[in-house]
Design a protein around this nucleic acid. Structure first.
Lengths: 199, 199
DNA sequence: CTTTAAAATGAATGATCATTCAGTATAATA
DNA sequence: TATTATACTGAATGATCATTCATTTTAAAG
């Protein structure tokens, strides 16, 4: 009867949005700029997204989706809490470090208003914190992690360290690899969590 | 000869800006809104600030200035690296936790673009990180902190934990006091830094 | 080849605001 | 009190864009 929707178009719009927003910031990026880079008309954007804000939210959803997918696969073959933590540090830093433009979005552009943070933080980041919390609790049950520590608190501390390393990497112009921080971060976090560190 | 400038006016404009920006976000806050709350005409704003962006930057400068001032006083009567670290955790969390509106600005609104982050991050936050770095290095020299750890790296980790606690507090609606995290944070960080923890 | 339902277009709309500046008010001096 | 340098005002300006929608293009189905 009629035309079939172009399945890849939405993705191409999001890809264009990553580049433009990373380069100019969300508020300095116009819908027309995204449309132009994606090779579609301005109006076409609105066939795929309710409004400009929704583009940014979708960007984060897509990134988080990949993250969760890859993460759960790797964490399934898990193991002790220590091993899980090592794995998640590696995953976090390697996934963020894989795409600088996307990292600019997640580490900087996404955080521009408390209303935005609310929408994102409660759902997606909340789920991530839950995963971390469960790992800590497991470590305590295994008797490897200190018991005098709220798992929820420790999860936030772990997230804080990972997030700061990511942000620092994004803001620094130097050509370092974020993954080079895997070792130090793991060592630092395990020292903070472990009951009886090997001195 | 003529009228003298009202010394307090600039401060009143900044105070108004904190409330408006914390309430609506930087980009949804109009200069007119700030002017109205400050009780001045729109144009008056431009006698004290070059443009809207400069208001936000000044807000951060003012906050950071207070922070550094209070911080250096307390840190002077310092002591071992461990004691300094305890002090700085307490200072950081109590100063951020003192004014929720200001905390919204520093934890969320300031971070809305990489260009903004650059201006701020390199100068002010950089200086703060230097202080933390020196504390870590001192701890290593005293033989209390692990030596197999880059002081700059450890400083970022410490900052990451503090910053995440602050952001989490700002985003959570619950009526907790940020200072209640001083104990857990200190314990976690010292465990991560110390050479030979008391088990 | 014709029909047709849906996708795509992009010029036009309408709002929103940061910023300016010509004019007014004020307080320090003479 | 008159003078005057400066602070202050707020209506007007001029740009900028997100969003819409009447029209056009496309490709599947008959």
């Amino acid at each position: 009867m009629a035309r079939t929707p172009d399945a890849g178009k939405r993705e191409r719009i999001l890809d264009a949005a990553v580049v433009e927003i990373a380069g100019h910031g969300f508020f300095q990026t116009t819908v027309a700029m995204i449309a132009k880079r994606a090779g579609v008309a301005d109006g076409t954007i609105y066939l795929y997204f309710r409004n400009k804000d929704e583009i940014l939210l979708s960007l984060f959803d897509r990134a988080m989706g990949r993250f969760i997918k890859e993460g759960s696969t790797h964490l399934e073959q898990a193991l002790t809490a220590t091993e899980k933590l090592e794995k998640i540090v590696e995953l976090h830093l390697s996934l963020v470090g894989k795409d600088r433009d996307l990292a600019i979005i997640t580490q900087v552009e996404m955080r521009h208003s408390i209303h935005f943070m609310d929408q994102v933080s409660r759902d997606q980041v909340g789920r991530y914190l839950e995963i971390l919390t469960r790992i800590v609790a497991q470590g305590q049950q295994e008797g490897r992690f200190r018991g005098d520590m709220e798992p929820v608190f420790a999860a936030k501390a772990v997230f804080g360290v990972l997030d700061e390393m990511a942000t620092d990497w994004v803001l620094s112009r130097r050509n370092t690899r974020l993954e080079s921080k895997v070792g130090p971060v793991t060592a630092f976090l395990l020292a903070g969590l472990r009951k009886d560190p090997q001195v």
